[in-house]
Amino acid sequence: MLGGISIWQLLIVLGIIILVFGTKKLRNVGTDLGGAVKGFKKAVHEDEKDADKKDDDQPQAKVRHDEAGNTYDVQAEEKDKQAAENDERK
């Protein structure tokens, strides 16, 4: 069946585990594990929703190169300000 393990061997192992840990402890572990899996699935589903919503809400950016002369030179402006201040001081 599962690599040479029969159903009887699995039942014996399960019985030993129940004797060692007890049913209450195993139930708590199962509940915690189930809650963790459920939380993980919920988080993955919400992330997929957010990604889909984000893609749908915002259009893709468009770059246009047909507008000429709209560059902004910060260094030139600073030089102009310094020159104007120097002229005012003189």
Rank of each mutant, 00 (worst) to 15 (best):
E46R: 13
G39W: 05
D87K: 13
L11D: 09
N70W: 04
V74R: 00
W8A: 12
D52S: 15
G4Y: 07
T23I: 10
L10Q: 08
Q60R: 15
V29N: 05
K38V: 03
D66Q: 00
G35T: 11
L14T: 08
N28V: 08
K38H: 08
A51W: 05
Q60E: 14
V44W: 09
V74K: 01
N86T: 00
L2C: 07
K49H: 14
D56L: 14
G4T: 08
A84R: 03
W8S: 14
Q9S: 06
A68I: 06
A61C: 10
E67R: 09
G39Y: 03
V37G: 00
E88I: 04
G35A: 12
D52W: 15
K53M: 13
V20A: 02
L10K: 10
A84T: 01
G69E: 00
G35H: 11
K38L: 07
E48L: 15
A36N: 10
N28G: 14
E46Q: 14
N28I: 03
A76K: 03
R27Y: 12
K81D: 07
L26E: 01
K79H: 02
E48T: 03
Q58P: 06
Q75A: 09
S6R: 05
E88G: 10
G69N: 05
I17P: 07
E67P: 00
D73V: 04
E67A: 02
G3A: 02
D66I: 02
D55N: 10
R89L: 09
K41H: 14
Q82H: 02
L26Q: 01
V63W: 03
I16R: 04
K24P: 03
D52I: 15
G3P: 05
T71D: 00
A84V: 07
A83P: 06
D57T: 14
K62D: 04
F21K: 01
K49F: 14
V37C: 08
K90W: 06
K53V: 12
D80F: 08
L26F: 06
K24G: 13
D52L: 15
E85M: 01
E85H: 00
E77G: 06
F21W: 09
L33H: 14
R27C: 12
V44P: 02
V29R: 08
